[in-house]
Amino acid sequence: MDVASAFAAAFQLVLGLDPRFLQIVGLSLSVTLTAVVLAALIGLPLGAWLALARFPGRAALIVLINGLMGLPPVVAGLMVFLLLSRSGPLGDWGLLFTPSAMVAAQMLLVLPIIVALTRSTVEELWTEYREHFRSIGLTGLRAVPSLLWDGRFALATGLLAGFGRASAEVGAVLIVGGNIAGYTRTMTTSIALETSKGDLPLALGLGLVLIALTLAINAAAYGASRVGARFAG
């Protein structure tokens, strides 16, 4: 099959809403969305706490989290694999090669991004707001909701960056999901598999969706920063 006819077949898949194709896209989006939401629920408060708290080893922890932003996805996958494998500490949960395991692996990739960005955003705001907040009695953790709200545009960009990283990665979901057709096969793992099998239309179609997703995420991030600039000055 030449590349031109592969493209034509790919567009047919996308526009014809092929069920096999839709199932893969749907699973990918739901896994990544779940991972980002869970990581945000943990990462936003944790990052804000890290911005305000002072304790020995804080600087080392910040460096560690910043470093984890660059954690290779395959290593994240390996760590979750070791945790969830039958002989691992959480082996009894029987989660290996399920969508839940993929959510866990992507959370591990997204969490450092959200924590690090929240920490720097909140710390910057706190420097500016500290005296006023102290004046109106908002100190310590009581200040966190106000600080998160005022950092909402920067934090939205961070969540989108996390979503982008998780939706684009292959290694982690491949290791812990197992790429089982109809169950744990995501867009990225399908592309890897179908390309090696020679089924270019499906790989290309999914590639197009991924590119569109990336563009949409970047447009949203740009929009958030524009709205933020207009509102925050």
């Binding site: 707001y129 006023h132 109106i136 009695g137 106000s146 709200w149 005022d150 950092g151 933020g228 925050a232």
Partner: peptide, 29 residues
């Protein structure tokens, strides 16, 4: 309830509307 308040040299304005800036301080104190 604290009965003394302070206005700073450079006003600290939250990233919200003027109304929300007032409401935030009133709700806090």
């Amino acid at each position: 309830t604290s009965r003394h308040a302070m206005v700073f040299q450079r006003p600290v304005m939250l990233r919200r509307s003027a109304r929300a800036n007032l409401a935030h301080a009133i709700a806090s104190v």
